[in-house]
């Protein structure tokens, strides 16, 4: 078996999530190659070559791939897939965007968001917002899979794979990049943080998220939010944790002014330790919290910051 793993990156550095997707590839077993598509992405390729268990890094460096447009990337991955039994990408917005196109072009089903590997054709994935766990077997000749990173531990990075550049350019010519508005933050990313503190509708407005910042600074934490806080315009969408946002599993997750709707729990209930601060003792979040504090967040947060 041979497995192609699609690298997540920003043309400068490899996202750590890719190391977890490689772990999933190792669980399947076989010769593992990483594909780096991008523009001016040589440093990414070099980083990828150090990922353990990988024998080859394929680099497709071209302007057509700069923004990871699904129409362009999917054509390239479909072409390369001829040589592999499995194609894996991380279940983040890039992988979710282009991988189903690859599956359709290969005429195979896609298995989304796997959290465990049972064998080379059988995988485990959550359904119904994580309220049920399905074991599915694929009868397709090629498997197209996205990997939920909370299911796998990152592999180490002391390997030494060969780097091979390819000059295939697949530009579908039907879509183009216009602009982006990316959040710049000094804090760790939600997916990479070992501590996350999230605020919900109970925060009342965006300004009050400052109350979380002081604590996040002390704990080296990332800041997340519930969908209600995003919808109300308190914070940007990339902070959303949940079924339809980011799935996280840090060592410590602190939920503040969040009720604990199933869609929110779906994104954080695999965290090692959960703390909930909520003024309503009946809030469902307390049913999953290791430590619950029934309190007004406007009193609790300043005190917590001062005592850390």
């Amino acid at each position: 078996m041979s497995i192609l793993v699609f690298a997540e990156h920003d043309n400068k550095s490899l996202k750590a999530d890719t190391l977890k997707t490689v772990a999933a590839a190792q669980a399947i077993g076989g010769d593992i190659h990483i594909l780096v598509t991008g523009s001016d992405c040589q440093t990414v390729a070099e980083e990828a070559s150090k990922v353990n268990g990988v024998s080859k890094v394929i680099v497709a460096d071209n302007a057509a791939y700069e923004y990871q447009l699904a129409e362009n990337i999917s054509l390239l991955v479909t072409e390369l897939a001829a040589d592999y039994s499995h194609v894996l990408a991380t279940a983040l917005t890039t992988g979710k965007n282009f991988m189903p196109r690859v599956a359709a072009l290969l005429d195979v089903a896609q298995i989304s968001d796997i959290i465990a590997v049972e064998s080379s054709d059988t995988f485990v994935r959550p359904i119904y917002a994580g309220n049920a766990i399905a074991t599915v077997q694929s009868s397709d000749s090629k498997k197209v899979i996205t990997v939920r990173t909370t299911g796998f531990d990152a592999v180490a990075t002391d390997g030494n794979a060969e780097i091979v550049a390819i000059d295939t350019v697949t530009d579908a010519g039907i879509s183009s990049y216009v602009s982006d508005e990316l959040t710049v933050s000094e804090r760790p990313e939600l997916g990479a943080a070992s501590v996350i503190i999230s605020g919900g509708r109970g925060m009342q407005n965006g300004d009050n998220f400052k109350l979380l910042e002081g604590i996040a600074d002390k704990l080296g934490a990332a800041i997340g939010a519930s969908r209600a806080a995003v919808d109300a315009g308190f914070v940007p969408n990339d902070m959303q944790v949940g079924q339809t946002g980011k799935i996280v599993a840090p060592d410590l997750y602190i939920a503040v002014g969040i009720s604990g709707a199933i869609q929110h729990l779906a994104g954080m209930k695999d965290s090692k330790v959960i703390v909930a601060i909520n003024k309503d003792p009946e809030a469902p979040i307390f049913q999953v919290a290791d430590y619950g504090l029934v309190a007004d967040l406007f009193e609790a947060l300043p005190e917590l910051e001062s005592k850390l």
Binding site: D10, Y67, L69, L92, T93, T94, S175, S176, Y177, V178, S179, D180, E181, L182, T183, G191, P236, N237, D238, K246
Partner: peptide, 8 residues
């Protein structure tokens, strides 16, 4: 998208 918003 993961980092914020992208327009195409």
């Amino acid at each position: 998208v993961d980092g914020g918003l992208q327009t195409v």
